[in-house]
Amino acid sequence: MFDHVKIGVSNYTEGKNFFLKVLKPLGVEIGSEGEPSYGIELCGKNNASLCLCQAMEPPAPLHIAFVAETRQQVDAFYRAALDAGGKDNGTPGIRTHYHDNYYAAFVIGPDGHNIEAVCHDGAAE
C-alpha cells in the first residue's frame, strides 16, 4: 500500500542510529541520505521505505510494525532494539488474539514510538 512513510525524530543522529541498529536484522538498509532536515531513507526488500528527518517539534508517538520473514528475525530485532536503548513493550512471542501465527516483539524507541517486528509465518524454526 505505501511507497514510503516519513516521520520526524527529536534527535536526528540518535533516531537514525537507533533505527539502523534495530532494523538491520530485518534486512533494512540506507537507500539515500541528505541533511537532517531532509533525512534518511531506510529501505526494505519490498521497496517500501521509512524516512526519518529532524523534527521541528516533538513528534507524536506512533506504532510502526515491520515485516520479519522469520521468527528468528523477530528475536534478533528485539535483542538489537534493547541493545540500542529501546525499552521492552512486549517480548517475542505468539499473539493469538491477532491470529494463530502472529509472532511479534515490541519496543519503545527514543521518541516514544512503539516499534514492532512481526512474522506471520506459522513455521517455527
Results as ranks from 00 to 15, higher is better:
53 C>W: 06
84 A>Q: 05
104 A>P: 11
86 G>P: 04
21 K>I: 03
59 P>A: 01
75 D>N: 05
107 V>E: 06
7 I>S: 02
5 V>A: 03
86 G>R: 10
29 E>P: 04
107 V>A: 10
24 K>R: 10
106 F>W: 14
21 K>E: 02
16 K>M: 14
23 L>N: 13
4 H>N: 15
104 A>G: 13
95 R>D: 01
54 Q>S: 07
71 R>Q: 02
15 G>T: 03
76 A>D: 13
44 G>P: 08
113 H>N: 15
37 S>W: 15
10 S>P: 12
18 F>M: 02
66 F>D: 11
118 V>L: 10
42 L>Q: 10
90 G>W: 05
106 F>G: 01
113 H>W: 13
30 I>Y: 11
67 V>D: 15
124 A>Y: 01
75 D>S: 14
77 F>D: 11
32 S>E: 06
89 N>W: 05
3 D>N: 09
99 H>I: 06
76 A>E: 13
21 K>Y: 09
59 P>K: 10
11 N>R: 12
4 H>L: 07
5 V>P: 04
48 A>L: 06
101 N>W: 15
35 E>A: 10
91 T>H: 08
21 K>S: 01
81 A>P: 00
48 A>G: 07
67 V>A: 10
93 G>K: 07
102 Y>F: 15
67 V>C: 14
77 F>C: 00
105 A>Y: 08
64 I>Q: 05
51 C>L: 13
4 H>C: 15
59 P>T: 12
37 S>V: 14
82 L>F: 08
118 V>R: 02
63 H>G: 13
72 Q>R: 04
40 I>T: 04
14 E>M: 11
24 K>P: 00
55 A>M: 10
30 I>G: 07
63 H>C: 01
35 E>F: 06
90 G>E: 03
106 F>Q: 01
102 Y>A: 10
77 F>P: 12
105 A>R: 12
26 L>Y: 14
32 S>D: 15
119 C>G: 03
10 S>A: 12
79 R>I: 00
116 E>G: 05
82 L>G: 01
70 T>I: 06
2 F>P: 15
122 G>C: 04
119 C>Y: 00
28 V>S: 01
109 G>M: 05
88 D>F: 02
119 C>R: 03
106 F>R: 01
7 I>E: 00
11 N>G: 15
36 P>I: 10
107 V>K: 01
24 K>C: 00
56 M>L: 06
36 P>M: 08
113 H>P: 02
23 L>G: 11
39 G>Q: 04
95 R>F: 09
18 F>P: 07
15 G>S: 03
40 I>H: 03
116 E>R: 08
70 T>H: 04
38 Y>C: 07
84 A>Y: 14
26 L>N: 12
54 Q>A: 09
58 P>M: 11
64 I>H: 13
25 P>D: 12
113 H>K: 11
39 G>R: 05
